[in-house]
Computed example of a mutant assay.
Amino acid sequence: MSENIMLPHPHKIIDIIPETEDVYTFRVETSAKVKHGQFFQVSIPKIGEAPISVSCMGENWVELTIRKVGKLTNEIFNLKPGDKLFMRGPYGNSFPIEEFKGKHLVVIAGGTGVAPVRSFLKYFYENPDEIKSLHFIAGFRDEKNILFREDLKKFKTKFNTIYTLDRDKIEGFEVGLVTEHIKKIPFNSFEDYNVVIVGPHVMMHFAALECLKNGVTEEKIWVSFERRMSCGVGKCGHCKINEVYVCLEGPVFNYTKAKNLLD
């Protein structure tokens, strides 16, 4: 009898790391083989289910960075290490890491959009020889919404980083939206490169336009989004945009296709 792919399984929470007041990272036991950019459907029985990107992975564990925004996430935030979280997956495609190797990489992320890119940023931090250079722009609303502070400090030591806040002025951070800082990236000096953009839809839309304005061609840009994911396996249609099932063909898209999917 074949296994029910829609059936979530319990996984033990190993650790919980508060990132901000309403964003926690949950380290969860799993033997699943996960690629950078994939997501799990996370649930609590009789409460609900939501798609959550993998923000880090290791030997028999993944980290899921979750914002407290409603009934399900309120319940998840009541869990403690040792408790079980129900998951199914991983689902979706992944960032084309092999294609990034040996080239320059520009990563532009806003808010919780830093979570889906964090795992491959950590990979290139640990394997810097596999990439020519890495420019990382990360933007947050204000000081209290900064995520992954320790990682940001580490990335600064090996990557070309620009960290920015929409309104607060604090040491180590610029002021303004990420789009305002894209012109600082020396695209003209790169012979071969890729650009990854992850964040709210409106941010990805305008960041991509800003990159195009600075000479980046569409096929060099990659975006990731989880639009109203529900089943994760292309059955329910919640994530369908035009004829595209985001859960099956995404959440990572080349901009040549994504430009028709962004609102």
Rank of each mutant, 00 (worst) to 15 (best):
M1Y: 04
M1W: 02
E3W: 02
N4S: 12
P8M: 05
H9W: 12
P10Y: 09
P10M: 08
P10Q: 01
K12G: 05
K12W: 01
I14F: 07
I16H: 09
I17T: 05
P18F: 05
E19S: 08
T20Q: 05
T25L: 02
F26C: 05
F26V: 06
F26L: 10
S31R: 15
K33Q: 06
K33E: 01
K33N: 06
G37H: 05
V42G: 04
S43G: 06
P45I: 09
P45A: 01
G48I: 15
E49K: 15
E49H: 14
A50N: 01
P51C: 11
S53V: 11
C56V: 03
M57F: 07
E59F: 03
T65G: 00
R67H: 08
K68Y: 10
L72Q: 15
T73Q: 14
I76Y: 11
I76E: 12
N78V: 00
D83T: 10
L85K: 04
M87E: 07
R88E: 06
G89V: 03
G89D: 01
P90T: 04
Y91W: 14
G92I: 05
F95K: 03
F95E: 00
P96L: 01
P96I: 10
I97A: 00
E98N: 12
K103Q: 12
L105Q: 09
L105C: 12
V107G: 08
G110H: 08
G110E: 11
T112N: 07
V114K: 03
V114W: 03
A115R: 02
P116S: 13
P116T: 06
V117S: 06
Y123F: 12
Y123K: 12
F124N: 00
P128F: 10
E130M: 13
A138C: 15
R141T: 14
I146W: 08
L147H: 08
E150A: 09
L152P: 00
K153I: 06
F155N: 00
L165S: 07
L165F: 15
D166T: 10
G172L: 04
E174S: 14
L177S: 13
L177D: 02
L177K: 13
T179Y: 03
H181E: 06
I182T: 07
K183R: 15
K183D: 09
I185H: 09
F187K: 07
F187E: 02
Y193R: 08
Y193V: 11
V195T: 13
V195R: 09
V196W: 06
V198Y: 11
H205E: 08
A208I: 04
N214R: 00
G215H: 00
E218F: 00
E219P: 02
V223Y: 00
V223N: 14
R227K: 05
C231S: 13
K235I: 10
K235E: 09
C236L: 06
G237D: 14
H238L: 05
C239M: 05
I241Q: 13
I241H: 13
P251S: 00
F253N: 13
F253G: 09
N254Q: 09
Y255S: 06
T256G: 11
T256N: 13
A258Y: 05
K259H: 12
N260D: 11
